[in-house]
Design a binder for these strands. Structure first.
Length: 591
RNA sequence: GGUCCGGUAGCUCAGCUGGAUAGAGCAACAGCCUUCUAAGCUGUAGGCCAUUGGUUCGAAUCCAAUCCGGAUCACCA
């Protein structure tokens, strides 16, 4: 059990003992003691004052005395203005160290086991992944890790939007301008090749529109009547009709894109357990909607279009099927949600999707509930803010979108440059160097994107992201490498209990933080928030570095001190390695 | 206009289920490598927690209003 939980139980017992009343555990506030006071944890007694009918100071003093008598957890206490500062026995921490220093797994049991599907990445197949996708991907992957380590069952899912007008645009442009180009003949990564034709489509579309406008057309008509746009729409109709030639081209180009995506996912170390394709689920969505219509949950307008009325929920009417029977975005999502639940029956279905779709996701959940879909209540939108540049939003039209592959390459390059400048990698083989640059570059990138609370939009500052100092992945990785270096030199570590050793205050401080790791994991899992892991692991590394400055390990004053510190260092290394692992960041042994 | 989200140091962010004198990192300035990796450590400086009012023993945190910024309200995805 967590130390804080133990303290709460002891306090509860003491209150029962002294005052013959038993307050709920949730009434007890235990904080870290502020550094300017003596103590490890502090009980705030103000909230108890009303319940017990006594002054906070008196409660604190009486509880302090009783706790000292009854519990072996505490060494001493002091009271300042209703705050009961508790000094824990060193034994609490040394026994924690002894029991855990060789741990590498750090699994904790969440209060309730859940089966959770996490859908993330979810790209369109008309262009390569960009920087905004990276935040999504890292969030989903990291959240999945965190849920698994807190003993939940996780299915990692990728929903690929492989059909629709967007891919038809790339297809049209390729037909018109491609001259049969393939990834092989051009030496271009498949997703980039298809993306190039998407750009080409838009260029041609624009120039056709300006020609039409110059001929005297209205802008709105020009937008609708530009020949290349008509061609794209024609292609979409052919696709829906199952035209063989169109389907073949569609499959070919999508396969190029998947090959390209897979290269990027591999570089990032990203995997999925299950892939869904919207081309497989939109028909199912239609079927569910027709059933909903038959049951009278949905209604039809004169033009045969199908709607749901959400005005009682404070929202609008929402279109689910066009008058011509073709599906919209929501149609597909309903089908996919149904299929997911049919296949896996999960308790919770997490959608990692940007906050511009908050409304859409709210509506999706409501519709599923109204339709009586069994998985509806488990739908959870993990909404994250957009990634912006210091100059503002990334806009594809203005060419300010940062490509994911470029970004990865850039970070790895910077890692190489920094490493070479520091000149610390003598004896590394070429392969080891390449691996190290990848570890550091990707570590910096992932950490940078995960360290901010997901729901907040964040600013990606290229200057700052290349800085490997301070609150960054490489800082934490560096601490890990330093510890590994010490442990290599130390050789085998005695497995003795070191309870006789009198730890220093910074050693105790280290153990206090380490003991909180399990609580951080549970909180991160509960809040679906990997940034808590970033903050924690950074704080741990920082505290260790400070500890290292004035504590000699290999040349410690006594064998007991040396063993204690080696065990402490091992535990630190293991937590860092584990915590970074949850972020998808690997921890190098040398750097 | 309706709904939702945000506003904390020059910059990027923690803290938000109410608790002690609001914390980090970067940037700035001043120091620390004959000693386990200086990608490190220490110190200085930097704040009307957007504004106003309310709730109470106590508010950056909760409530209300206002101001500013963003998202969204498509037969787009």
């Amino acid at each position: 059990m967590q130390i804080v939980e133990q303290i709460k139980l002891e306090v509860q017992k003491s209150i029962t003992h002294i005052y013959k009343q038993t307050p709920g555990i949730e009434l007890l506030t235990i904080n870290d003691t502020k550094p300017e006071f003596e103590g490890d944890y502090t009980l705030v007694t103000f909230a108890l004052s009303k319940l017990l009918g006594k002054k906070p100071d008196d409660i604190a003093n009486e509880l302090g005395l009783d706790l000292m008598n009854r519990s072996r957890l505490f060494a001493s206490f002091n009271v300042i203005k209703g705050f009961l500062n508790l000094v824990l026995n060193d034994a609490c921490f040394s026994s924690y160290l002894y029991a855990n220093w060789q741990n590498k797994v750090f699994e904790v049991k969440a209060a309730q086991h859940k089966k959770v599907m996490v859908e993330y990445s979810s790209p369109n197949t008309n262009k390569p992944l960009h920087f905004g996708h990276l935040r999504n991907i890292f969030l989903g992957a990291s959240l999945s890790n965190i849920l698994r380590t807190t003993s939940h069952e996780v299915i990692k899912a990728n929903l690929i939007n492989d059909r629709g007008i967007h891919i038809c645009k790339s297809m049209v442009a390729w037909q018109l301008f491609g001259n049969g180009a393939t990834p092989e003949t051009t030496g271009t990564k498949g997703d980039h090749l298809v993306g190039d034709y998407y750009v080409k489509f838009n260029d041609e579309y624009k120039s056709q529109m300006s020609v039409l406008v110059a001929e005297g057309w209205e802008q709105a008509d020009a937008e609708k009547q530009a020949p290349i746009m008509l061609a794209a729409q024609d292609l979409l109709r052919k696709w829906e009709a199952g035209d063989e030639e169109t389907i073949t081209l569609w499959k070919t180009m999508n396969d190029w894109v998947y090959a390209g995506f897979n290269i990027t996912y591999d570089k990032l170390g990203i995997t999925f357990d299950k892939r869904y394709y919207e081309s497989d689920t939109y028909l199912l969505g239609k079927k569910i909607i027709e059933e909903g219509l038959a049951k009278g949950i949905l209604f039809q307008k004169e033009d045969k279009s199908v709607w749901i009325d959400l005005t009682h929920e404070g929202l609008d009417q929402k279109l689910l099927l066009r008058g011509d029977g073709t599906s919209v975005y929501m149609t597909q999502d309903i089908g996919t949600a149904n299929l997911k639940y049919t296949e896996f029956g999960m308790d919770t279905s997490v959608y990692v999707i940007g906050d511009e779709q908050n409304y859409h996701m709210q509506v999706l959940k409501l519709i599923m509930q109204k339709l009586g879909e069994p998985g509806a209540d488990g739908i959870y939108h993990l909404s994250y803010g957009m990634v912006e540049l210091p100059s503002g939003k990334m806009k594809s039209r203005e060419g300010t979108v940062v490509d994911a592959d470029d970004m990865i390459a850039e970070m790895v390059n910077i890692a190489q440059k920094n490493t070479e400048e520091l000149g610390k990698v003598e004896g590394f083989t070429n392969d080891e160097l390449v691996a190290l640059y990848n570890t550091l570059g990707l570590g910096a990138l992932k950490f940078y994107l995960l360290r901010v609370d997901p729901k907040k939009k964040m600013i990606f500052n290229p200057q700052e992201s290349i800085d490997f100092h301070g609150f960054t992945g490489p800082f934490v990785q560096y601490t890990h490498a330093r510890i590994c270096s010490i442990l290599r030199k130390a050789g085998e570590i005695a497995a003795d209990a070191t309870s006789s050793y009198a730890m220093t205050s910074s050693e105790k401080g280290m153990l206090k933080i380490q003991e909180q790791y399990a609580a951080v994991l549970l909180q991160a899992a509960h809040e679906y928030n990997p940034s808590l892991i970033c903050n924690y692991v950074f704080q741990l590394a920082k505290t260790y570095n400070a500890f290292l400055v004035d504590h000699s390990i290999l040349k410690a004053d006594s064998d007991a001190a040396k063993t204690f510190r080696l065990q402490l260092s091992t535990l630190t290394r293991n937590i860092i390695s584990h915590g970074l692992g949850l972020l998808g960041v690997s921890a190098p042994e040398r750097m």
